[in-house]
Write a protein that binds this DNA or RNA. Sequence first.
RNA 1: GCGCCCGUGGCUCAACUGGAUAGAGUAUCGGACUUCGGAUCCGACGGUUAUAGGUUCGAAUCCUAUCGGGCGCACCA
Length: 527
Amino acid sequence: MKDKVTSLLRHHIEGDIVLEKPKERSFGHFATPAAFGLAKILRKSPIVIAQDLAAQLSHVEAFSSVEAVSGYINIRLSDAFLEEYASWAITHEAQFAKGIKEGKILLEFVSANPTGPLHIGHARGAIYGDTLLRLGRHLGYEMTAEYYINDAGNQMDLLGTSIMLEAKSTLLGQEVVYPESFYRGEYMTDLAKEAMAEFGAEVFVEANQMMLAQWGKERVMKLIIDTLASANIHFDTFVSEASLYGDWERVLAKLQANDAIAMVEEKLWLKSTLKGDEKDRVVVRENGKPTYLAGDLIYHNQKFERNYDQYINIWGADHHGYIARVKAAVDFMGFDSSKLEVLLSQMVSLLKEGEPYKMSKRKGNVILMSDILEEIGADALRFIFASKKSDTSLEFDIETLKKEDASNPAFYINYAHARIQTLLGKSTYSIEQIMQASLEGVGEEGMHLLFDAMQLPEVVDGAFESREIQKLPEFLKRLAGAFHKFYGAHKIIGAPQEAQYLKLFLAVAVSLRVGLSLMGVTAKNRM
RNA sequence: GCGCCCGUGGCUCAACUGGAUAGAGUAUCGGACUUCGGAUCCGACGGUUAUAGGUUCGAAUCCUAUCGGGCGCACCA
């Protein structure tokens, strides 16, 4: 809708056109401060320019009024224009708020280590990524959701060792000596039991450490995938770090050819300071083993060779120091590093009964994503996490997450949708009859509600392009609130305008449904 | 010490990316249809946007400094 209005304005106004939503409803549907910008160029007062433009624009058919108010130009759309737009949305729900954006985007997110189940901190990045994915796809981008599995290095050894130690101490009652760090927790006991059932007690010997690690990784990945699935999150592709190293020689040769590598003290360093990093980074140790960074270099080389238009990585904020070196490497490999966008999902800090709650994977006192999903459900969790700007650290109390009441916006929005379904069920009008009704009788407040509902396309576009997904839940809350208010003020069933009101509500319901689905939440018809 | 992110009513967060009188929820207090779902609605209270400068028609938003918080500063992944 905004696009349509912008293109109508383009015939009359030069330059970039900024359309805003006026603060006060009485000002109209859209406003533009265009006159302020033109004032400098034309050397005239913005107030005079605004008046001239308003006079021209008042002839546009889709506008019912255009007014100049202290330099702003306020535009009101005609009822006919709004009604036509809404009717189309109702009858073309699958198309509503869709875009025609072009481009292939590789979105990598979650990528949690396969050494333990997802905890509540992972959930934020997972929900952020999946919501972006849904928004981007709706807008027309060709998007691939990818999970990078860090299944190499010490942590894999540690996983094998941990399973073995857990089995020995808990299942076999043996005295064991624990290393400095190891994984523990309920899932570890489960893994040990499963391994025991599958392979027998004799499997728990040093020589089988690697085999147990591999087996454990598969089990943990299955856990992770299942947890994600129960939050409606699915990946298209998985890339294993361990599987990449065969390509290391080739990538290294490429980097060396581009003079990106130096040999100092028997180690190979990436000369990332040349690209703005704080210091150079070791990629191959003295003992010949590549570092974790080497894996990431191969991975990003592989990503870029797969030739997407854009690459988005969602990382936990604790990895922000990593961005410079990866971008440097991408540059060195001859790719355009500006195509790589790293979004940070800030830390989630937890409180428990008002006290800070520190999670530690090693100690096993983590709050599992799967537990929270079971307690409050995917909808509530998705809603809460999607409502916060991802680059702000988020603090909340575990106990409040468990509540199911009005503080839960998912309920509030679903309630609006369910109310509409109830009304449609109670009405004697059929959908066909309702669609034939005109919206003329719904009044000014009704037309405002309709306009609100029809803004989903702009919201979806804005939320994705700015990577600020909280705009969508914000919008849905506002729309649901506007609906509840209208509902409270008007009797619907039996009113002379019953069919008109219901047509209006159909438009609201479409917007709520499509909006919710983009958040990975299914709208409820009954509560 | 250096780097990144952040600082908005008591609390949790918005603010169309530089626009009009900074908005919601929650908490607190007070109200509403003996009728469509009261999981709702209406009202009140609550702000020098951390502080101080600067940029301009205009700043929560941009710049500088200071204060405060989080996270990094591995040859661990």
